[in-house]
Simulated scan of single mutants.
Amino acid sequence: MSAATPHLLELKGVHTHIGAYHILHGVDLAVPKGQLTMLLGRNGAGKTTTLRTIMGLWQASQGSIHFAGRDITRLHTPQIAGLNIAYVPENMGIFADLTVRENMLLAARQARSAAQMDEARLQWIFGLFPAVQKFWNHPAGKLSGGQKQMLAVSRAIVEPRELLIVDEPSKGLAPAIINNMIDAFDQLKQSGVTILLVEQNIHFAKRLGDAVAVMDNGRVVHAGRMADLAADEALQQSLLGLSL
């Protein structure tokens, strides 16, 4: 790990078994501090399993995971979340019967009531995602897919986080909402949050990514600058079977 590009998160030789299935086959992944790293790959490449293994939802059977220089490989999920890491799963994990406000309050660990939530931070989030403010007192289950995704990300950042991990934030969203999401992640990055994103939308990846890692068959098969991958159509074709 060089002093010039300190890695906030680093996976070395990570293997993950789920039951009888060997999903990750020695994943090496470095997430530079203060940057947005894209994790790309075809369906079934192991991207979601990598995120779940980082968060301790599935245990690595081999290898190591370090966050801010600390070995977190054997920590449990609540301990990992307590290190200022937020995770937005692909299914978003919204509590449908609770209001938007109640969903946000659950994630604000320092607050016992909505009045105790950081008002300046809430206003910043409302600026990123106006729908969260608009539907503040509505049941979260009544929101559209795009609005639920905005709530899921808002909930993850209701308190300052050092690392934000998000699984396919643009999945199923309309282009206008995707652009809104891109702007929000860009602002988050500018605020100093390190972000690791799994994404299938190549436009999204190209607009936002600083670094990129491409997975195939449970391994990272390419790592480098997103701009270099975006500029190299032959490499895109060989790694992803598509052009950006």
Rank of each mutant, 00 (worst) to 15 (best):
residue 147 Q to Y: 09
residue 46 G to H: 00
residue 97 D to Q: 15
residue 4 A to V: 06
residue 30 A to C: 08
residue 115 A to H: 15
residue 96 A to D: 15
residue 51 L to R: 02
residue 103 N to Y: 10
residue 39 L to H: 04
residue 146 G to E: 05
residue 16 T to L: 08
residue 21 Y to F: 15
residue 142 K to N: 14
residue 80 I to Q: 12
residue 183 D to M: 12
residue 61 S to F: 04
residue 177 I to Q: 05
residue 167 D to L: 05
residue 197 L to Q: 01
residue 236 Q to F: 04
residue 228 D to T: 10
residue 146 G to R: 01
residue 204 F to S: 01
residue 39 L to T: 03
residue 233 E to S: 12
residue 124 W to K: 07
residue 169 P to Q: 12
residue 125 I to D: 01
residue 228 D to Q: 15
residue 225 R to L: 13
residue 165 I to F: 10
residue 87 Y to H: 13
residue 59 Q to S: 14
residue 67 F to H: 11
residue 11 L to E: 06
residue 4 A to H: 08
residue 133 Q to D: 13
residue 63 G to T: 10
residue 157 I to R: 02
residue 219 R to L: 06
residue 141 G to R: 13
residue 25 H to C: 03
residue 49 T to Q: 01
residue 100 V to A: 06
residue 192 G to P: 03
residue 65 I to R: 03
residue 33 K to T: 10
residue 199 E to N: 04
residue 203 H to K: 12
residue 66 H to G: 05
residue 71 D to L: 08
residue 138 H to V: 14
residue 31 V to Y: 00
residue 78 P to K: 09
residue 84 N to T: 13
residue 197 L to R: 00
residue 172 G to Q: 10
residue 68 A to N: 12
residue 237 Q to G: 03
residue 32 P to Y: 02
residue 14 V to K: 02
residue 118 D to K: 01
residue 168 E to Y: 10
residue 31 V to R: 01
residue 71 D to Y: 09
residue 115 A to I: 09
residue 213 A to R: 00
residue 108 A to D: 15
residue 154 S to C: 14
residue 121 R to F: 00
residue 60 A to V: 07
residue 210 D to F: 02
residue 242 L to R: 06
residue 238 S to Q: 15
residue 32 P to A: 11
residue 215 M to D: 03
residue 92 M to A: 12
residue 57 L to M: 14
residue 241 G to I: 01
residue 119 E to V: 09
residue 86 A to W: 06
residue 82 G to A: 15
residue 240 L to C: 03
residue 127 G to W: 09
residue 198 V to C: 02
residue 57 L to W: 07
residue 174 A to S: 12
residue 130 P to D: 13
residue 122 L to P: 01
residue 42 R to K: 14
residue 202 I to M: 09
residue 35 Q to Y: 09
residue 93 G to F: 14
residue 180 N to Y: 07
residue 97 D to M: 13
residue 183 D to H: 14
residue 170 S to H: 04
residue 9 L to I: 10
